[in-house]
Simulated scan of single mutants.
Amino acid sequence: MSQHKTIPSPTDASQGSKKMLTAMVGIGVFCALLIVLTYEGTKERIEKLKAEALEQAVFRVLPGISQTKIFELIEDGNFIPSDGKDRSKKLVYAGFDDGGSLVGIAIEASGQGYADVIRILYGYNPSNQTVVGMYVLESKETPGLGDKIEKDENFLSNFNALSVALTEDYKQIKNKVVPVKQGSKTNPWEVDGITGATISSRAIGNIIGESSSTMIPLIYNQLEKFKLD
């Protein structure tokens, strides 16, 4: 007895493809919607945690402070008080002691590292014109090597009293901060690098060198604006 096979018509195949495509599009839209909802639902929480981490970092890079106030650098080169909500602005963080006296200014800066952009916060003490602390806010450097910029005590000691002294007219840095090979530091404006994490450690020195050259003269010449009240 002969057997008859049913061959799907082109119309049936086309309809099947349309159903599959519709299903895939629907799944894609659902996943996209889920991602957006998750992002929107956690955005506020993430921003709050970032703000708290940044505040803690300010206290770390400015030893001896008990109070802080945020200031914004506007287009004309002047600093004004800010609520700090718009992180796209150029913000600095003034630190004060219990008596309300200015101790120093914490400055955000960033630059290219080995793997990606490195974001740091460093503290500036205008009374002795030195950097008095550095903290890595964001880094994707290689674990065990590049991430030594966050942990190596000898490297971090570079920023206990790193000179950013100004010229006599207070218009520019006298000696720009520069990175040097590990063990070859001879001047107070040099950043001693880390063997095995040369690119990452040099990046920190260069980031502070570029940032301080611009920010320190602006800050020093407007110290009277950094008031707690």
Rank of each mutant, 00 (worst) to 15 (best):
A203E: 00
V180G: 03
K69G: 10
A51G: 09
E108K: 14
I35M: 11
T214Q: 01
Y220C: 02
M134I: 15
T130Q: 14
T214P: 05
V178L: 08
I199V: 10
I65M: 10
G77H: 15
L145I: 04
P81M: 14
K171W: 08
T198G: 07
D192L: 04
R119A: 12
M215Y: 01
K19Y: 07
F59W: 12
K181S: 05
G144P: 07
S200Y: 03
P63I: 12
S101Y: 07
I65W: 08
L145M: 13
S163P: 00
V103E: 03
G26L: 06
P8E: 06
G104Y: 05
M1L: 11
S201G: 06
Q222W: 02
K5D: 11
V36M: 09
N221P: 08
V132F: 10
L73V: 09
F159W: 07
S211T: 07
I27S: 09
S101V: 05
S101D: 13
I80P: 07
F79K: 06
R202A: 15
I7W: 02
A94S: 07
F226K: 02
E190L: 03
G144C: 09
S212T: 04
G95D: 02
K43Y: 15
P8C: 01
G123N: 12
S82Y: 10
T130K: 15
M215R: 04
V180S: 02
T198L: 08
Q129F: 13
S184K: 13
P81K: 05
A115H: 15
D86Q: 13
T186V: 11
S101A: 06
K19L: 05
P217Y: 03
K43M: 15
S17N: 04
F96H: 00
L73D: 07
T130E: 12
D192I: 05
S127T: 15
Y124P: 07
G144Q: 00
Y124N: 10
S14E: 03
N128E: 13
Q3T: 01
D116V: 14
G99C: 00
T186I: 05
V117A: 11
N206E: 14
M1G: 12
G183C: 04
I208M: 03
N187W: 04
G99A: 02
G41P: 07
K151F: 13
T6F: 06
L121M: 15
M1A: 12
K174D: 04
G146M: 06
W189Y: 08
V103Q: 03
Q56K: 15
N206Q: 13
E44C: 08
I120E: 03
I204T: 05
P179E: 06
E168M: 06
T22M: 15
N125H: 13
H4D: 03
L62M: 10
M24G: 02
E210R: 05
E190K: 02
I65K: 10
S9H: 01
K225I: 01
K176M: 02
A32M: 15
N160C: 09
G111E: 04
D97V: 01
